[in-house]
Design a protein around this nucleic acid. Structure first.
Lengths: 201, 201
DNA sequence: ATAATAGTTGACCGGTTGGACAACCTGCTT
DNA sequence: AAGCAGGTTGTCCAACCGGTCAACTATTAT
C-alpha cells in the first residue's frame, strides 16, 4: 500500500557524508535536501528535526560499519592482532576519505559529539552511546590478551578507555593537521599502551 | 587622540567564552555583541569577519594562559613533576569551567579546530599553531627527563606528540561524557606513556 | 577653539535558516 | 475500479545570519 521510496535512505547517507566532511553547523537542511535531490517537505515527512536526522544518520552509519568491527574483533583473531587490524582499518578508512574529499575527517562520532556536546543533549548521548560500542570491542580484546598472558594490565576496562581516548586524540590531531602520516604512530603506541602495566586509578 | 575603548577586549573575551561553552556554529555575531554590550557596527570596526575574531580571541586566550604554562614547565621544576603539574592544571581548569557552566568543555583550541578543520583553513592553521606550542612544552620535559635518565624514550618529539594526543582524546571523552572523573586517569597514563619505551616510527 | 583621531550608533541589506503546510500524486489492496 | 496509506511537491514563513554604512560623538593635541 502506498508508494515506496529511498528518499529516507538517501537523506541519511547524504547527511552523514556532508556533516562528516564539513560540520553540523555549516551544513543546512537545504544543503542536504539539494544533494539528496529530495524536497524539504519530504525531509520533514521523515524527520522531525535536524537533530533527529543526524542521530539517525549516525546510527545508520554504525549499522553499516558493524560487520567490519565484528570481523576485526572476532574471537577467531588473536587478541593483539585485533588491535593491530583495528589501527590498520582506521588508517585505511581515513585514507579513502582523504582521497575522496581531500580532508582528514577524523572520527565522525567524536567530531559531531565534540561540536554539539554542550549544545544538544540528545546528540551528546548518541555520541556517548556509539563510543561505548567501540570501547567494548577494545575491552574484550584486552581481556582476552590478559587471559592468554600476552599483556599485563590491572584493569582491562580502564586500559581500553585509555587506548580509545588516545586513538581519538590521534584522529583529532590528524584532522587538525590534515595529515594522514600522523596515524602511522597508532599501532606501536596502542601496542605499548595495551602491553605495559597501567597504573590503576 | 580619539576616544579609548575596551570594546575590543570585551568582544574577544565574550567570543571566547561563548564559543568555548557552545560552539562556533551555534554562536552568532549578534550573540557576542549582545553579551559584550557592543553594537554590531563596532564589532565590524574592530574585526573584518567572524573568523578573524575567533582567531584573535584564541590568540588572546593563549596570551593570558602562557604564564601558567611557563610556570608549570619551568626548568626549575623536575621534568616528570612538570607533566604531573600539567595534568593537575588541566583538571583544575576543567573543574572551574564545569562549576561555572555545568559543562565539561574540553580543550578550546581542539574543539574549535575539530569543528572547523575542514571548513575554515585559517582557523585550522591557528589551531595547529596553538597545539604546537603546548606540544613544545611537553617535548622539552621529555628531553630533560631523558637527559636525567628518568625515562627511556627513543624519540622525545614523537613521545610528546603521543602524550598530547592522548590528553586531547581524554579531554574529548570528558566533554562528550560530560564527566570530570574521566580526567583522573590522565596523570598515571601520562607517566606511563612518558616512562615506557615507545616504538619509534 | 579647532581639527583630527578613535570609536559608536542603529538602521539596513540580501540571503539563508529550520520548519510548516495544504494540495497533490502513486501504487498497492481489496 | 475504488479507496487509501505512503510519499511528494513547492510555496510560505518569521527569525536570523554575517556584514555594511553614513552619520554621529567623544577625546586629545595643537
Amino acid at each position: 500500500m502506498g508508494r515506496i521510496s529511498d528518499a529516507r535512505e538517501k537523506l541519511l547517507q547524504v547527511a552523514f557524508d556532508l556533516i562528516y566532511d564539513h560540520s553540523y553547523g555549516t551544513v543546512s537542511v537545504d544543503h542536504i535536501c539539494k544533494r539528496a535531490r529530495v524536497n524539504k517537505g519530504s525531509f520533514y515527512y521523515f524527520f522531525r528535526t535536524k537533530t533527529e536526522l543526524v542521530i539517525e544518520a549516525y546510527e545508520e552509519h554504525w549499522r553499516l560499519k558493524r560487520p567490519d568491527y565484528d570481523r576485526i574483533f572476532s574471537t577467531q583473531v588473536p587478541p593483539l592482532k585485533r588491535l593491530e587490524m583495528w589501527c590498520d582499518y582506521i588508517c585505511e578508512v581515513q585514507r579513502k576519505r582523504f582521497e575522496k574529499y581531500e580532508h582528514v575527517c577524523g572520527c565522525p562520532y567524536t567530531s559531531v559529539g565534540s561540536e554539539l556536546a554542550t549544545c544538544d543533549e540528545k546528540v551528546r548521548l548518541k555520541a556517548m552511546d556509539l563510543i561505548e560500542r567501540t570501547v567494548k570491542y577494545v575491552e574484550s580484546a584486552i581481556v582476552d590478551a590478559k587471559r592468554e598472558g600476552l599483556v599485563q594490565v590491572d584493569n582491562a576496562t580502564i586500559t581500553a578507555q585509555q587506548i580509545h581516548a588516545y586513538i581519538q586524540g590521534l584522529l583529532l590531531r590528524a584532522k587538525i593537521y590534515n595529515d594522514l602520516k600522523i596515524l602511522r604512530q597508532a599501532k606501536p603506541t596502542v601496542q605499548m599502551m595495551a602491553g605495559a602495566r597501567t597504573v590503576s586509578a
